[in-house]
């Protein structure tokens, strides 16, 4: 009879963190506690690639391409790499796809768990710090080639603005202004956004800018997938405002992507910025 009740760790007050609780109760469920044999393991699993995010007046958008690669092979052409973390935030992931998707699930549960236990949501910085802690716990695997690098964005209700955070594999957390990109195509995407981003963009303008940036990334990086017009596969786009986050419907993204493609038929390098 004594075995059937909930274990004592369930009833112990103290932590509001799901990851901490899991570390005590079922550490084998944590993605970072997996034992991996020594040596590089980076080529074992698919890699996700480019994520871009940009703020606009009253919110923030994040978009990710749909390609996962294994070396020179395209492992999947419609993978989803941008996920809602909670109602007001979104996380996109680059790096080892399997670990990253599991880490996103852990992060989503972490935020919801805190909200239910404490009766209030974490602050934007609190969420960003929790994600940093999860990434830091993965450092051992990252050093064997199984790195996960997220990009985190959300609407900060206290500051009334969209905010973007980037990370490194050691769990370093850096707040970015205006726009940022991670993943193999991020250099090209960031260069593109530098020329396209303006402070006065509205939500649709910001979505157009990030899809342009993904196009430019796909143009020059073989691991980033461009719009797949024959299969109608387009980037995953999330828009977050003070009303919460929405996954932009595929037909709306397709309409913007089609406009961009039509313009690139005229000028394949995309819109030209003025020289001065």
């Amino acid at each position: 009879m004594g075995d059937s009740r909930l274990p004592a760790s369930f009833m112990t007050p103290g932590t509001s963190s799901f990851a901490d609780f899991l570390g005590v109760q079922a550490p084998d469920l944590l993605p970072s506690r997996r034992a991996v044999p020594a040596g590089a393991a980076g080529d074992l699993a698919p890699h996700g690639t480019t994520i871009v995010a940009a703020t606009f007046e009253g919110g923030v958008v994040m978009a990710g391409d749909r390609r996962a690669t294994m070396g020179n092979i395209i492992a999947q052409r419609d993978i989803q790499k941008v996920f809602p973390a909670d109602e007001y935030s979104v996380v996109g992931i680059a790096g080892t796809a399997g670990l990253a998707v599991e880490m996103v699930r852990l992060f989503q549960t972490e935020l919801e768990h805190y909200e239910k236990i404490e009766g209030t949501t974490l602050s934007m910085d609190g969420k960003a710090n929790r994600l940093a802690a999860l990434i830091r716990a993965n450092l051992g695997l990252a050093m064997q080639g199984l790195a996960v690098v997220p990009l985190f964005a959300g609407y900060d209700l206290a500051a009334d603005q969209g905010r973007i955070f980037s990370y490194d594999v050691t769990g370093g957390r850096y707040e970015e202004t205006a726009f940022h990109s991670v993943g193999s195509g991020s250099l090209f995407a960031r260069g593109s956004l530098k020329k396209l981003y303006r402070d006065d963009l509205d939500a649709e303008g910001a979505v157009t800018a990030v899809i342009q940036a993904l196009y430019d990334a796909a143009d020059d990086d073989s691991a980033t997938g461009g719009p797949d017009i024959t299969r109608r596969i387009f980037p995953v786009v999330h828009v977050i405002t003070a009303d919460g986050g929405v996954h932009m419907p595929d037909d709306q993204v397709a309409a913007i992507a089609d406009r961009i493609l039509a313009a690139r038929m005229e000028r394949p390098d995309g819109p030209a910025a003025s020289l001065t």
């Binding site: 009833m11 007050p13 799901f18 469920l29 236990i117």
Partner: peptide, 17 residues
Amino acid sequence: ENLRIAGVRLADMRGYA
């Protein structure tokens, strides 16, 4: 409150696993 927290932990753990 103790039971509630235990329930949230149980549910979240099961949903995650």
